[in-house]
Design a protein around this nucleic acid. Structure first.
Length: 782
DNA sequence: CTAGGGTTAG
């Protein structure tokens, strides 16, 4: 039965393997010598070849043996297993059975090992059944290899069962089980087994056990337990074992205890590539990218050659230093050192290029990769997303799905592609990807849910977002951050803050992003006192240094309070250099407070950055016009013309049941445009605007030709009107706009929501406005 | 004769 199960492996390619070819010339000689030897000497010769990995020679000797015993067969299998030639090993195993031999207690461990390496779970189970029939079910060696097999191929419960049913366990049994729990993500079980073997069974863990336990500490981020194990290491005199020390070093690095790691590192006798690699990785993890580079230099000074993993571990630090030339030099170094092509390194380089905004380099790498895994695809998809290329990301996603890559998207693919859907902000497409994800059964994946939540809120459906959140079985900090931010994005700060309180009550530990969400919530809803309180708490209680986004929220809040002078003071005292966005917040605040001088001051700062400053000019121009300073307004208009800058064309989308309609400023391509214009004018008039534009049936053409500046013709108005007349009463109307909604439209839509009794949701470039019964969720400040 | 072992991309 076993033979049949694995017979598909049996083919003739064993002879073509390089190990055989390289040694083929020696074969004949060996054959001749072997024939002359006595059988016990033949066995010795066979073993000596097997032990030194000379498989061709071993085979030659084996072939001279007339009545090969189990001993000889086992030796041949073992030789191949040890050389990682597992298919060959299995082939010899099959041949052994065909030769009428019955496996013994020495055969099984090696065969099981090869099955494990080949991920032959079914075959492994068959073998398990067979060895029980043969009465070998209690053999310690066999059980240990079974534990290893079930730990790697699953289910872990089977490994546990074998372990518990053993009449006697040795230290390897424990080590294997401890490591098995660990590789199944069960760090705590791993550590408790480690303790149990000592306390309840009086066993003294060896170096292997210690190393597994230390890695369990990494998983649980428990430097405390790691230190206890460190003490044990010293007591047992394992300090001289380089591998143990390296694992300890890694534990301190991963648990964020760089000081301890550094001390250990400096006291080490012998530092090799791996030691340096661990340190370089540690500096990256603890946000000390410069130290990672220092470590690399130390490494080179002490004559240790970097390898592919060194470069791999270095990449995050170089990315963080945002130094593209260093990044490139790593790439060049990899090529010179012949580290490429290397699947993992190439993917890491791709990610690096994507993060520093060199999308083209990432694309080039991806296109030229000789081999790609799902990870590479996922990384490339995210590379597009990160660089604002949502459509390209979607294209690649579709290629992954359709073209015979035979790869199935996983949870990472989904979390990477979903932001592209958020970017598209199309509810209809959001629903489609949601349905697809549902089919893939990632229904319990927290990451996937988090991205869905974010997508729905970005697409304008706060309820759907909340529904995802409520249904989640396992939430993490990101889930909370996302739902809090969702309410902030929809201008409902009070609910956002309530959720923050619940989050803390439930014992979740807020992080930097949490406070960003919380401060945004305070900012959108104008909770000035709360804003300052949380700004203070995050620094004092949580020791977070404010990020630029946090400062932005505070500037918004100061602006809301009308305290522009204090806002300027605040900006100048920030711990980070102000960005154009920060001055942008001041500009917005100046506009809302009708403070032209301050607006000019902010605009000047923004212009210094030399980006696309169109928006800045547009705001200034509008402010001058509002204040009746026509010459100044005209001056700005001339500047715009001179620099060939064009005001972003207004564009509004309305999401209907089955499709999306787009209205672009100055375009009248919609086939029902006349009806829509009439509807819009009627609604606007009803909302109390003067009827200058009310259409006269007979004068349609004239009206259409006219360059419409009137607010009643703003694209939002058209989108809202069309939404209202083409959807059922009682359903909300969802409109999205690429630029900020103007004051007139905001006022009008409030009234429209009142007399039509409909909820109207308008997402602009900043937030979603929920218009209901004549009020807007933004509290008229945005 | 047989079992477990340091750093590693999204």
């Amino acid at each position: 039965m076993v033979a049949r199960a694995i017979s598909h492996l049996v083919c003739s390619c064993c002879i073509t393997h390089p190990t055989y070819q390289s040694n083929r010339s020696k074969q004949l000689n060996n054959k001749r010598t072997a024939v002359k030897l006595h059988s016990s000497n033949v066995s010795k010769l066979l073993i000596s070849h097997v032990d030194s990995g000379e498989l061709a020679e071993a085979l030659a000797v084996f072939q001279t043996i007339k009545n090969a015993t189990n001993f000889h067969w086992n030796a041949m299998i073992r030789g191949h297993t040890n050389c990682e030639l597992h298919e060959e090993a299995i082939r010899f195993y099959v041949q052994m059975q065909n030769a009428g031999k019955v496996e013994d207690k020495f055969t099984f461990p090696i065969v099981i090992k090869s099955c494990t390496r080949l991920s032959f779970r079914t075959q492994g189970c068959t073998i398990h059944a067979k060895l029980i029939k043969l009465g070998l079910g209690s053999d310690v060696f066999i059980c240990n290899s079974l534990i290893a097999m079930y730990s790697k191929l699953g289910p872990i419960e089977s490994a546990e069962r074998v372990f518990l049913d053993m009449p006697a366990r040795d230290i390897v049994s424990w080590n294997t089980m401890i490591d098995g729990y660990l590789s199944n993500g069960e760090g705590l079980k791993s550590l408790s087994s480690f303790r149990q073997m000592q306390k309840d069974f009086g066993l003294k863990p060896d170096q292997c056990g210690v190393m597994s336990a230390l890695r369990a500490c990494n998983k649980e981020l428990s430097p405390k337990k790691g230190k206890e194990i460190h003490c044990y290491v010293i007591k047992q005199g394992f300090e001289l074992d380089n591998q143990v020390i390296t694992t300890l070093l890694d534990m301190y690095c991963k648990c964020g205890e760089m000081r301890h790691a550094e001390r250990l590192f400096h006291n080490m006798q012998e530092r090799n590539v791996v030691t340096f690699n661990v340190m370089i990785n540690g500096y990256a993890l603890s946000n000390q990218p410069a130290m990672a580079v220092v470590s690399l230099m130390e490494m080179q000074e002490s004559g240790v050659e970097p390898d592919a993993i060194t470069l791999l571990n270095l990449i995050p630090s170089l990315t963080q230093l945002r130094c593209s030339s260093h990044g490139r030099s790593v790439h060049g170094f990899a090529i010179r050192k012949a580290c490429l092509p290397d699947l993992i390194l190439e993917t890491a380089l791709m990610v690096m290029y994507a993060k520093i905004g060199e999308l083209n380099s990432a694309i080039l790498l991806f296109d030229r990769m000789p081999e790609r895994t799902l990870v590479s695809w996922n990384a490339m998809i995210y590379a597009y997303v990160q660089n604002g290329k949502a459509l390209e990301a979607l294209d690649l996603f579709v290629i992954l799905l359709k073209e015979g890559t035979s790869l199935k998207p996983d949870a990472f693919t989904i979390t990477n592609i979903v932001p592209a859907y958020s970017e598209l902000a199309s509810l209809r497409h959001a629903g489609q990807i949601h349905g697809y994800v549902f089919k893939l059964e990632y229904g319990t994946n927290t990451l996937v849910h988090n991205s869905m939540m974010h997508m729905y809120s970005r697409c304008g459906d706060l309820n759907a977002s909340r529904k995802v959140f409520d249904k989640m079985l396992e939430r993490d900090v990101v889930s909370w951050n996302t739902i809090i931010l969702a309410y902030a994005l929809h201008g409902i700060g009070s609910t956002a803050l309530d959720l923050f309180k619940v989050m803390k009550e439930m014992g979740y530990e807020p992080n930097n992003d949490t406070f960003q969400s919380v401060l945004s919530a305070c900012s959108v809803s104008g909770f000035i006192e709360e804003g300052w309180m949380y700004f203070d708490i995050m620094q004092r209680e949580y020791n977070f240094s404010p990020q630029i986004e946090d400062y932005g929220c505070m500037v918004d809040l100061l602006g809301r309070a009308g305290d522009l002078e204090r806002a300027v003071e605040f900006i100048e005292r920030m711990q980070v250099a102000p960005t154009a966005k920060i001055w942008g917040s001041l500009l917005t605040a100046s506009r809302n407070n009708r403070n032209i001088e301050m607006a000019e001051f902010a605009a000047e700062r923004i212009l210094n950055f030399g980006h696309d400053n169109t928006g800045c000019y547009v705001i200034l121009c509008a402010m001058y016009s509002d204040a009746g300073r026509w010459e100044d307004a005209e001056r700005i208009r001339c500047l715009l013309k001179e620099y060939d800058l064009h005001r972003t064309r207004g564009r509004s989308l309305v999401e209907l049941n089955k499709n999306t309609c787009s209205f672009v400023e100055g375009e009248k391509s919609h086939h029902q445009i006349y009806t829509i214009l009439v509807a819009s004018d009627i609604l606007s008039m009803e909302a109390g605007e003067s009827a200058v534009n009310l259409l006269n049936k007979f004068n349609l053409q004239g009206v259409l030709k006219e360059k419409v500046k009137q607010p009643s013709r703003h694209t939002v108005r058209l989108a809202v009107s069309f939404g209202l007349i083409s959807s059922a009463n009682g359903t909300p109307v969802l409109v999205k706009k690429n630029i900020r909604i103007c004051n007139d439209c905001h006022k009008a839509v409030k009234k429209i929501s009142s007399f039509t009794g409909r909820e109207i949701i308008v997402g602009d470039s900043t937030i979603y406005h929920h218009f209901n019964n004549g009020k807007c969720s933004c509290g008229d400040y945005w």
